[in-house]
Design a protein around this nucleic acid. Structure first.
Length: 195
DNA sequence: CGTCAGATGATC
DNA sequence: ATCATCTGACGC
């Protein structure tokens, strides 16, 4: 499968996010098919980490398209974001869920020996399966060696709805339907809130 | 099926 | 103090 080039990511996050469903993300021996994503963008979205402007942590969100923004959530979970749009704009796609394509054994080991379905529903599980951490922040996806993104099998149909876990944001932004998922996949979190 | 508390650490 | 979460415990 072919690697996604920089141009794929150099569009608005609302175009890139749904296009990423069905694409594949790889790191080392692990390859996953993306099944659920969310878009974040500042200005105009108080759910976005960049809502208070540039800080050491959010600097990566303003970086060039096709690079990683990985942050630690609740002190436990490594959350993978894909930076989009032109450099200087704060946009990223959060990879929320995926199916295991390759590296089943390694993923099971990282998950503490849990063996079972190929569905990884939830962003913490995606980061854990890939074995990534915040040190990947700033790395490009379109070059070999790090986290890589490949063209995959687009979903037959997408479902969309509001994003998850952003109670701190203004009501209007909480309601934005900026979450997309593969309608036919079992690897989707909070499925009830989607249509 | 549901709700709930605890884990755990960077950030501003 | 807050937080783009997960898991296991417990109740129905």
């Amino acid at each position: 499968m072919s690697r996604l080039g920089r141009a794929f990511f150099a569009r608005d996050v609302l175009d890139v996010a749904p296009a990423l469903v069905g694409m594949q993300v790889g790191h080392g021996a692990v390859r996953l098919r993306i099944t659920e994503v969310e878009a974040y963008r500042w200005p105009g979205d108080t759910a976005c980490h960049a809502r208070h402007g540039r800080t050491p942590r959010t600097e990566a969100l303003f970086g060039p398209p096709g690079t990683a923004y990985v942050y630690l959530c609740y002190g436990l979970h490594q959350m993978l974001n894909i930076v989009t749009g032109e450099e200087g704009s704060a946009q990223a796609v959060l990879v929320r869920s995926a199916e295991i394509v390759d590296g089943h054994a390694l993923v099971a080991e990282r998950r503490g020996g849990r063996t079972g379905p190929d569905a990884l529903a939830g962003p913490g599980k995606v980061g854990q399966a890939l074995g990534i951490d915040t040190r990947a922040t700033g790395q490009p996806f379109y070059e070999p060696g790090g986290i890589e993104l490949f063209a995959g099998t687009p979903a037959d149909a997408l479902v969309r709805g509001p994003r998850v876990g952003i109670d701190y944001a203004e009501a209007a932004h909480r309601a934005l339907p900026w979450r997309w998922a593969d309608a036919g996949s079992r690897a989707v979190s909070h499925r009830k809130k989607l249509e």
